[in-house]
Design a protein around this nucleic acid. Structure first.
Lengths: 217, 217
DNA sequence: GATGTAAGCTTACATCGTAAGTCAAACAGC
DNA sequence: GCTGTTTGACTTACGATGTAAGCTTACATC
């Protein structure tokens, strides 16, 4: 080993650098060439450790899935859902780029670590007394809540405006009190980073709904 | 007009073709060159009607927003939310590609038609008795539900697998009854297109929660 | 006709993912 | 020690992308 420089590439080192780069520059900023440059290496060298860019993104996504901790199977189902979904939310919220890669189908993790999470989730739902069909539906609903919350929360209105004028100016020009009164009234709150989705609150509502569905069977 | 062929390009004709192409080939399949080819024209000709690709995507997103019908402002707030969110869900569900463009920040619609929807949504939430901060939070929550549902629903496990073996095979090999019992049990339902998120059901739960929040103030 | 302008076309460039080939260093068997 | 073989890097090259810059054509107005 220690062939030429960089004291040895490795899948782990590549994934580390890829997460950094993606966090820093977004999904589009993460290119094989730029990633390689960041590691002091040529682009094609990465392909010794990673099948292709898709595989790279899969690896990143798998890491996030694997950072989700599984609750004790002995706990009641609703508590398991709370812990699991909360842990998933925290993990994905810390890496919104990965969520974007997942929903845009650039990544689809096929690691046992990812499946493990899905299995635990489905297990809790089945234990709640749902049918297989309902369990899948509700699993999707919960995942949708997690992904949706992360995406909406991390799409700050200011950032996407690099290509034209700053969005605040545009907003303040176009949102007048008489044409769009409600938007105008909530404008300060819209730009307030404190006004994010209250994830746990929405989660409890869905769990209540789950309980009701299960009892109606 | 009628310069050479195609009997006159126009922003509308371009947007029409772009939606078709995006639906057919996905977001990555929608390129300026391919879009132009579809219209019997060179890529650069599109730039006479569209500022750049971002503007094109903004136009597509605006169209979807503008297809969302606003409820009668005289209706009670909860009914307005039901109609508005339902209409938004239907509109976006019909064009999942646009949702992906939105959440990946490739599109950010700045048309009055889009703002109109947001304003109506915030109006209903404020009428429910929420503070500005809570209204923004709940608006984000509802939007997250819509987007999340669409995304999770339209990420069918089979499609993302072009780059390696078919995912069913991989699933059936890797999901064994003893290692991942719950996943194994729900496998048929996971591949069943009937098992989508029950959007209206989840929506009612969030509306119930809204009512509770408002009364606690 | 001459002129101005709008809407096409052509060429060109930087950047992307990655296939194919080269080459030097590290290790295995003798 | 020497000698394959393997590994992991580098180099070159190809087709695709978004789009800047310039050219050309067709029509409107005078």
């Amino acid at each position: 080993m220690t062939p030429r420089r960089g004291e040895g590439l490795s899948r782990e080192r590549i994934l580390d650098a890829a997460i950094e780069l993606a966090e820093l520059e977004g999904l589009t900023g993460l290119s094989m060439r730029r990633l390689a440059a960041r590691l002091g290496v040529e682009a094609m060298s990465l392909y010794n450790h990673v099948a292709n860019k898709g595989d790279l993104l899969d690896g990143l996504a798998s890491r996030v899935f694997e950072s989700i901790s599984l609750p004790d199977p002995g706990l009641p189902w609703d508590e398991r859902i709370r812990l699991l979904t909360g842990s998933a939310y925290t993990a994905f919220r810390a890496q919104p780029v990965i969520v974007r890669a997942l929903v845009s189908q650039q990544a689809n993790p096929r690691s046992s670590g990812s499946l493990r999470v899905i299995d635990a989730m489905l297990g809790a739902l089945l234990d709640a007394g749902l049918t297989e069909q309902d369990a899948v539906r509700r699993y999707r609903g919960l995942l949708g809540l997690v992904f949706g919350s992360v995406l909406v929360d991390t799409t700050d209105p200011g950032s996407a405006s690099e290509r034209s004028e700053p969005i605040d100016d545009w907003f303040r020009r176009n949102i007048t009190a008489d044409a769009l009164p409600n938007l105008h009234r909530t404008l300060p709150a819209l730009f307030d980073v404190g006004c994010r989705v209250k994830f746990t609150h929405e989660l409890e509502l869905l769990i209540d709904g789950l309980r009701a569905t299960a009892q109606n069977d």
